[in-house]
């Protein structure tokens, strides 16, 4: 599990050029968001990650 999550080791710093490219990062900026449209949780409840209202989607589901 630990290996799955964090790997065995990190590459030497001089080998980090490719993983430091802006499109290789997990950025908070919406300019660099991929496959995560803000509106999709309205349609697909499995994408909703926060808030009871977003999660429930419907109004009278239990």
């Amino acid at each position: 599990m630990i290996v799955f999550l964090v790997g065995c080791s990190s590459p030497a710093v001089r080998q980090q050029r490719l993983v430091a490219k802006p499109n290789m990062l997990f950025s908070d900026s919406v300019v660099l968001s991929y496959n995560s449209p803000k509106l999709l949780p309205q349609l697909a409840p499995g994408f909703a990650g926060s808030g009871g209202a977003q999660n429930s989607g419907c109004t009278s589901c239990r």
Partner: peptide, 11 residues
């Protein structure tokens, strides 16, 4: 958890 695993892979 965010990690650089190899010189080409970030997770």
């Amino acid at each position: 958890f965010e990690n650089v695993l190899t010189r080409r892979i970030r997770t």
